[in-house]
Amino acid sequence: MIYLLTIDWLLLLEKLILIAVVVMASLVIAMYETYAERKIAAFMQDRIGPNRAGIFGILQPLADGMKLFFKEEIIPNSSNKILFVLGPSLAMLTAMMTCAVVPWSGDVNLFGRTISLQIADVNIGILYVFAVVSLGIYGVMIGGWASNNKYSLLAALRGASQVISYELAMGISLIALLMMTGSLSLKTIVEQQMQSHWNILYQPLGFLIFFVCALAECNRTPFDLSEAENELNMGYHQEYSSMKLGFYLFAEYVNMFVSSAIMATLFFGGYDIPFFNESAHADLGNWLALFGIICFMLKIGIFIFLFMWIRWTVPRFRYDQLMNLGWKKLIPLALANMLVTGAVILWLHK
């Protein structure tokens, strides 16, 4: 027991508070993403959108959540009960886990302690994101199978094969980026971008491939084949009701937030304030970290808007088109990008 006392309890407390804040923040942001999605869709379709709950319908997400909580909870008789509940829980868990390695801003000084606004700075940060993303599909697969419904199963299998296919191109486009940064730690990648230029300048093609794959990994239109309601009734969550359905829908929005954060970190400088030299203004202290967060959130917001814009303009792909795009176009393109990047790096270091 004596050893337990030697743990840095303050560090533990600090991390626990940070985890709670990050989880709460991503849930609230995901909530308001649903509102933003409905408003943006309404704007694009020349409608008004939700405007009944609160001013401008600002309380609409709360009303939606409340409605889902009070709905009757139905677990089909023929389903596998444990896995039926495990499915949405896993989807939500994996969606939340990715936030752990995102550096939200620079260090903050509070009560004489330097606090890093990143839950864990592991030296394999981006691989951790990758692992969690590849685990994310279990929620969909288990839920779809446990429902014991042919449409759900088909949708789950579609979703799984789509995620596996697009993971490859995503990984290869990342390798090109990592060859330049020479580090897998997200914090180091951001700090490098703060000192020189954003990675988007060096890796525009890599970013494009990464973005398309992120759309596919989040199951967003035009890649939402696992929710194709006109072919599959409703998709993998057809048998779900109440908040278990809400978890699936919500996990999608959390995923969208986190993948926007990852894209902003990898290619757009993370919490770097544009056209501003942070290292020359170190005397600003905590304000610098605050502005960093604001900039980071703005970048994330732009990406989330982009996701929604695409959803309401581009129609859904057919399944064979999806697979052709993934295997025959994106992967060769990503491989070419990787080879060219490698050759240029070799040439510059000659």
Partner: peptide, 26 residues
């Protein structure tokens, strides 16, 4: 061995077991 740990997860838990699950479900 963080790298091996995470690669173990990506390759086995993330890819190979998904394929296992795929086949068994079908």
């Amino acid at each position: 061995a963080q790298f091996i740990a995470i690669v173990n997860l990506i390759v086995y838990a993330g890819a190979i077991m998904v394929l296992f699950l795929f086949v068994i479900m079908l």
